[in-house]
Amino acid sequence: MSAQFITDAVLVLVILLNLGMLASSRLATGVKLFALQSLLLAFLPLAEEVLEGQSPGLHAFIIGAGTLALKVVLIPYILLRIIRTGEVHREVEPFIGFTASVFVGALLVIGSFAVAMRLPLPMVPVSKLIVPVALSTLLLGMLTLVSRLKAITQVIGFLVLENGVFILGLLLLKQTPLLVELGILLDLFVGVFLMAIVVYHIRREFDHMDTHLLDALKES
C-alpha cells in the first residue's frame, strides 16, 4: 500500500464516482456523490507533494482547505437545500437512459485514456492517471450537462467539469499562482450561487425545474 497505489486508487475512484453520478436516479444522490468526489480531490494536492518527497507546503494546504470548504460543504449544502424545498420531482429525468449513458460514459473514459497517452506533456506527471482522469472527468461532466433535463443536474455537470479542470491543474501545481486558483474557486462559488437563485426562481414561477420546458419561446 504505497502512497502511489493510494493516489492511483483515488483517481480511479474519481472516475467511478463520475459514472455513479451518471447512473444515479436521485438528484440528492448525485449531489452527495459530487461532494464525495470533491472530498477525495481536496487531498490530492497534499498527496502529490508527499509523493514528490517534500513536506506539504502552505500552497497545497490552502487549495485543499478551500476546496473542502466550498465544494464539499457549502455548494452541496445549497444544492441539497434547493432539492429539499423544491419538492416537485426528485428524480433525474435523462434524455438518454441510465444504462445507455453509463455505457457512453465508459466509452468516453476509454477514449480519454487513448487520447491522453498521445498528448505531449511538458513534464512527467506524478501519476500516469492524472491526465486521463482529468480528461474523462471533463467529458463526463459535459455528458451530464448535455444529457440531463433538470437545472440542478446541469449545475452538477458544470461542477464535475470544473473538478476535471482542477485535476488537470494538479499537473501545474507549482507553476500556478495561488491567487489564480483561489480566483477559480471564488468564480465557481459565485456561479453556483447565481444558478441556485435562478433555479429557485424558475421553480417559484413555473413549479418545475425542467430546462426543456423553457424553450416554448422558440422561433419556428
Binding site: F95, M142, L143, L145, V146, S147, D215, E219
Partner: peptide, 14 residues
C-alpha cells in the same frame, strides 16, 4: 436545432 434547446448547443460544444 430549430427550437434552440440549450442541450443541443451544449452538445455542439462538446
Amino acid at each position: 436545432l430549430r427550437q434552440g434547446r440549450i442541450h443541443v448547443y451544449l452538445a455542439f460544444i462538446v
